[in-house]
């Protein structure tokens, strides 16, 4: 090896080392970003923002512009790439087994909007429908009656084998307090045990957010199946 070859070898070595250092530092930084998966309590599923079209039409119309997430005043609209620990809806709640069969698999990580109510629930500000350029989220007037009539993000299901009043563990009432349609969508009996009335529930998930149990005793079951609309309309 002569001097010229040695120098060019040195140069290549320096370049390779520099690339390696940059790559290692970069991979650490990227891992920190990429591996932040959403962790869900069991029996929780993401729901669509309020005013969303039926699932098939929503996926066709949503242009993945992320505007709904930008304007979301509750900062609840997320674009999860994957959710660890999320399961089909509650097994023990009445009717949940049937709905589980209806629910199609959800392909996440395609930058369509979801709400993860166990992290942050929707406060029904309706800005997302206002900003959506394609009408995948319909604009709905910010009005209690209109919202109660038009919004069906899902229906809350209570797991009676976990819920504090239902298991006679303690008094609670957190879901009743958080519910924007309290005494209609959620009522409690004389023993403080909550019941959801599906015909009044808009599925905002505020009850899920405030449920004090680590493994939430309440979940929102999204109407992803196409024939859920007919069931809800009754």
């Amino acid at each position: 090896m002569n001097r010229r070859q040695f120098l060019s070898w040195l140069r290549r070595l320096a370049k390779t080392a520099a690339a390696g250092v940059v790559g290692l530092a970069g991979s650490r930084w990227l891992r920190a970003g990429f591996l932040g998966a959403e962790a869900a309590p069991p029996a929780q599923r993401p729901i669509r923002p309020p005013g969303a079209l039926p699932e098939a039409r929503f996926r066709a119309a949503c242009t993945r512009c992320l505007l709904c997430g930008e304007v979301c005043s509750a900062m609840c609209i997320a674009f999860p790439s994957r959710i660890e620990g999320s399961q089909p809806p509650l097994r023990r709640a009445p009717g949940a087994m049937e709905r589980q069969e209806l629910a199609p698999p959800v392909w996440r990580g395609d930058d369509t909007p979801y709400i993860l109510p166990w992290k942050r629930a929707c406060n029904l500000c309706m800005r997302c429908g206002e900003v959506c350029p394609t009408g995948a989220l319909r604009p709905i007037a910010v009005d209690r009656q209109t919202i109660a009539r038009e919004v069906r993000m899902g229906v809350a299901l209570i797991d009676r084998k976990v819920c504090l009043p239902w298991t006679r563990t303690s008094w609670c009432g957190a879901c009743l307090t958080a519910c924007p349609y309290r005494q209609r969508a959620i009522t409690v009996d004389h023993q403080g045990r909550p019941t959801v009335h599906p015909e009044h529930c808009v599925g905002c998930g505020l009850c899920v957010e405030v449920c004090p149990l680590r493994y939430k005793a309440i979940a929102v079951d999204p109407p992803f199946a196409p024939d859920r609309g007919a069931v809800r309309a009754e």
Partner: peptide, 10 residues
């Protein structure tokens, strides 16, 4: 906003 990347980054 969330401190994470999605599949598009890969």
């Amino acid at each position: 906003t969330f401190g994470t990347f999605g599949a598009g980054a890969w």
